[in-house]
Nucleic acid binder design. Structure first.
Lengths: 306, 306
DNA sequence: CTTGCTTACGTCCCGCGTAATGATA
DNA sequence: TATCATTACGCGGGACGTAAGCAAG
């Protein structure tokens, strides 16, 4: 393959014009350049492409005519590569791999994805639920395009905050404190605590007790939020959580209550992370925009509004 | 179209290897060159083709995968151009335009072409009969691939001699001299002459009389050899000719006789001419070879052997 | 003498390889 | 530290244009 697309295009121009001079005007390239390109093609293929009629242009040999149509096809297909590029960059389509943090994935993902899939039917969605470390690793390995999770830092990561998720108090609906407008951690000092036992949340909730100067009295723990809710609904104790399922009934059928926590704790930040090193697909950009529109501190799909 | 086939082939190699290093070994090109080619393609198309995994190679993006198959197709089609070239240069096929000088075309062409067409059925023959000037002009204009004619010179022409055609004496079969083994022009000095009146032959035959010191006494002339033969057969006079039809009966039904001319005249040279500037097709080469085998001074298709 | 392809030649860009740098596991 | 990709950089070939050459009508 010692020839170039450029040579072929010059050849085609000359073949269509039956003249190097005319072709040179059309292609805006000098006569000698076109002449040389043709000579090189002839040498490369060992085939005479043109008859030269000295003072009156040239004409294709039979072999040249066959080459002309083949070359035209090739150039057309080469042009199709540009079309493909346009399609990829302008069309919102293709695969889109979304990750979400385990605890709010069941609330957020279905709502978010149904709407997005409706708006962009040519995008094929894949959803993953994982803990934060896994999400970050997969983003870095480009196994995920985007992930919804709590704030992450890292030079190669881009985090865009979407909403604040203040910690709230979870109580059984019939609890004596459940009717209070809001509570501070001190008000709950005597109550046993049910811990959501996940890598990040574990340390986070413990730090709140420390800040408030309240002893941590863990009566049960689980890495599943739904188990925590059921424990609490059963009257085992209270819990602190950030994600707020709309459903106020635990999986065991018992009712729950959410209460403001009016201590001055920094709220968790919900947002999306992408890899800085990777050029955004249109689909990714569209999904980002979709999230910006759908998710705010006031309103998060699948979550109870404050 | 600001990309090259070379860039694409590097990209394909890298895409198949999922590694620039491995690709560089396969293609025998340095790592940086391949890296650069890929970067240029990405810039050209505005599409990210690979995810870079720093110490462990790279992997195609979804867009990259689509580009990979498109690029492979394009390269394959480009390779097909080489196949086309091979086919054209190796196959004996395609059009072949043969010219022959008027006077011996009716003798030579049919015999020659029937045999050749049988041997090379994929060659489509076109035959032309013309006088020498026209043949040469058409060879130069590439309207003919090859012509059978008398010796021609010209820097841009190639003449290959095939046979000598000594001038012979044409007499009515019943003529008093017709039984002689051979004759010289002097023996015929008293006889009237019938001239084949064609551009070259005209001067040639006249020159023979001059050389022999015999006066030229033209009783009839025609530009058609068949008319000359009928004149002679009718007893109008004798003629000198070079082409020797196998048929010893003139078109008017009267018998003819051929006799050696034993003067020391330079014989006409029958051969084939081609244009020096034009690369020979395989079909042309095959036809040349066919002529070499079929035509010699001893034996010329369609002509009386001496 | 005009037309049109080719050759000659000088310039500049670009593809190439070597070597150094960066980044990750 | 080993492995890959990327950047830096100098070299050489090739694509380009200008100008001259050349053949044909």
């Amino acid at each position: 393959m010692r020839f170039t697309l450029k040579q072929l295009s010059y050849f085609v121009a000359a073949g269509e014009a039956n003249s190097i001079t005319l072709a040179s005007e059309r292609v805006h390239i000098s006569q000698p350049s076109i002449s040389s390109a043709i000579s090189q093609l002839e040498a490369e293929f060992g085939v005479q492409l043109f008859f030269r009629h000295h003072a009156q242009g040239l004409s294709l040999t039979p072999a040249g005519q066959r080459f002309l149509i083949a070359a035209r096809e090739l150039l057309q297909q080469a042009g199709a590569l540009n079309d493909l590029a346009d399609e990829i960059t302008t069309t919102i389509a293709g695969p889109l791999r979304i990750g979400a943090f385990r605890t709010f994935a069941p609330l957020l993902l279905p709502e978010l994805c149904v709407d997005f899939a409706e708006a962009h039917p040519k995008v094929s969605l894949e959803m993953f639920e994982d803990d934060e470390a896994e999400l970050v690793a997969k983003i870095r390995k480009a196994e995920l395009d985007i992930a919804l999770t709590y704030e992450q830092d890292g030079v190669d990561l881009h985090f865009e905050q979407l909403a604040l998720l203040p910690t709230y108090v979870l109580l059984p609906a019939g609890h004596g404190l459940a009717k209070s407008g809001s509570l501070s951690l001190k008000d709950l000092a005597s109550q046993p605590f049910v811990l959501l036992d996940l890598p990040v949340s574990r340390e986070y909730f413990a730090s709140l007790f420390e800040k408030a100067g309240v002893p941590l009295n863990i009566v049960a723990r689980s890495h599943q939020p739904e188990t925590v809710r059921s424990y609490v609904a059963s009257g085992l104790g209270f819990s602190l959580l950030t994600a707020r399922p709309k459903n106020l009934t635990a999986l065991n059928g018992r009712p729950l209550a959410y209460l403001y926590l009016d201590d001055d704790f920094p709220p968790m930040k919900l947002g999306m992370i992408t890899a800085r090193t990777i050029r955004k697909t249109r689909a990714v950009a569209a999904f980002e925009e979709h999230c910006r529109k759908s998710i705010s501190t006031r309103s998060i799909p699948g979550m109870m509004n404050w």
